[in-house]
Computed example of a mutant assay.
Amino acid sequence: MPLRSALAAVLVAIIWGLNFVVIDVGLEGMPPTLFLALRFAVVIVPAIFFVPRPKSRFRDVVLIGSFMSLGQFGLLYTALAIGMPAGLASLVLQAQVVLTVVFAALALRETPTRSQVIGVAIGALGLIVVGSGRGAETPALAFFVTIAAASSWAIGNVIARRIGRSGMTSTPLAGLSLTVWSALVVPLPMLALAFALHGSDAVGFALTHLTVPQLLSTGYTAWLASLVGYGIWNTLLARHPASAVVPFTMLVPPIGMTTAWLVLGEIPTIVELGGGVMLLLGVAITTGVLGSGRRRRLRS
């Protein structure tokens, strides 16, 4: 991957690492479904009036939005709202890296190598350790909902890669275009769900009593995490193999957990940290980070 693309991927990792704490702060006093609807409404307006429609099939755009935006964040916001610590969520969500390789093998017929199989096994074991050793303040349901969010993201990664193969890179704004237009599938279903779960009075009160942290969180998640982050991410996935792009998300947990510690006072248990190291080791092996390093040393 060219240096410019690598630096762009690092920038995305930093933005997303900070994003977990930003979301957690914004969820205070706000139903997660309504907060997600608000975020993606801001993503869409006014960008949709200036960003051209993707040249991909509309069905593919809807699929991207359904899994990478609606599914991933609907589940993540729910997990955070029911007790998932923001820092731990940033770690568990990276199971999407291992899951991306698995789903890509199934959907795109990318046969996994021996090292990838080993990496998937180690990453899965690490995830089990994190789950079994989680602190008492982390509900089991919140943990499994976060894994479901990671699965949805992984499916979105594979779909984005397949779209890239069919010509998504035909314009420089292709990644941003896909991000904006795929966001159309989020606000109305989430708003309807907010009304169904919380009632019109609660929804109306939340919208008319927005706090400064909620407004700042909405701006950050919509403009930085979504428009900038996913605009870059989708473009990178379209231009480079998923195995070259996805490993950069390994930077997200250290950033997310450090930010959660400094801002929210979250301190992971020793078992959670140990399982997290195993998970990230599995990610590194699965995506070839460690193997490529050994090959470079042998050549030098």
Results as ranks from 00 to 15, higher is better:
L237Y: 04
R53H: 00
T269A: 09
H209R: 12
T211S: 12
S90N: 09
A105I: 09
S300T: 13
A41N: 07
G293V: 14
A196I: 06
P139L: 12
G65V: 07
M84H: 12
F20A: 12
N19S: 15
T169Q: 04
A9M: 12
V246T: 11
V102S: 02
L76Y: 11
A124D: 08
L70S: 04
V102P: 05
L93P: 11
E272D: 13
V186G: 02
V289W: 14
F49V: 08
F35P: 03
M190W: 03
R4C: 00
S151G: 15
M190Y: 05
T179A: 14
V92F: 11
I232P: 00
L251N: 02
L215Q: 06
F35R: 01
A9V: 10
P54N: 07
A149C: 15
V12Y: 01
L18N: 08
T208W: 14
I128C: 10
I267M: 10
G123N: 05
I285S: 02
V22A: 10
T113N: 09
A105L: 11
A81V: 14
K55G: 00
M190F: 11
L210N: 12
Q116H: 05
T208F: 13
L38T: 12
P253Q: 10
R114F: 13
E137N: 15
G282Q: 05
W261Q: 07
I232F: 05
L63N: 01
